[in-house]
Amino acid sequence: MATATDTPATPPPQHTIHILPAPFTHSPLTLLAQGAEALVYRTVFLTPHTPCVLKYRPPKPYRHPILDKRLTKARLLAEARVLVKCRKDGVTVPAVLGLDAENGWMVLEWVEGGSVRGVLDGWVAGGGRFEGVEAGNGVWGLMRRIGRAVGRVHDIGVCHGDLTTSNLMVRTGASAVRGESEGPQTQTQMQRPKRLTPSALREAAMTSDAPPVFELPPEEPPPPPSKAQSTSDLEGDIVLIDFGLATQTVQDEDRAVDLYVLERAFAATHPGAEALFQEVLRSYGESYKGGRSVLRKLEDVRLRGRKRSMLG
């Protein structure tokens, strides 16, 4: 703590400039989202044609460096292990392409598409048509796929821990979007309200003196207007993202809390979407053997909230 005397006891500035670890220090990256623990960038990996997501957990200056490193490493590794397990067992999650737990970064497969939150917002703005109940498409089909996707994750013994509509993505285009992605991007992963505009960040990234070592993908067009939110946006595989709080557990309690968190997210972002969530629960219950008992547990969780009782 040699620098302790130099540092005034004031809160840090609003916009911390994060210096990324090697080898990304001089690479032009596009910031997609920032959370409390991690920064998420778009870049390319292994080949100049493979878009990917870089998730970086910067060191926390208020923690002891050794403890900080250990926590970062443990959390990043836990997330990567869960993702690899999911991928192995056939759950649609982004693949882990690269990892440096010591330095706090992980490279994930790029998922083309938008968050369920964005898709539902567009659906509401577009009139919110309840059609295709029997045919299993449209918004009902989407709800069913969400229920099945969550059910499958729980079935393999993983609880997401932060299941919100922003952490569910609808993959657009062909089933497996890996490698080449020529088309313009519609929406980016982990779209959140506080998101910064990509163009401003791109400029900031480009002003660094390092020569651009590869071409950035074309500028993303703004999210399509509500008119463009046709039913086609409601189709596509559900991909779960952000396993930063995921745990490997088979307890009904944890699974029910996952559903409860998702229910609250639905209620909070889409008033009137509670009817839709019933469809999620219905298909969840049918998706695997333990589903029914989780739904019963969910009744208990609803009464008391997310926090488990501290008895025993």
Partner: peptide, 20 residues
């Protein structure tokens, strides 16, 4: 081709997290 891609995704993950 899809089989190889799917295997590749898993294998990259396995290689990335090994030994940690």
């Amino acid at each position: 081709v899809d089989e190889r891609r799917e295997m590749e995704s898993v294998i990259l993950g396995i290689m990335a997290i090994k030994g940690l």
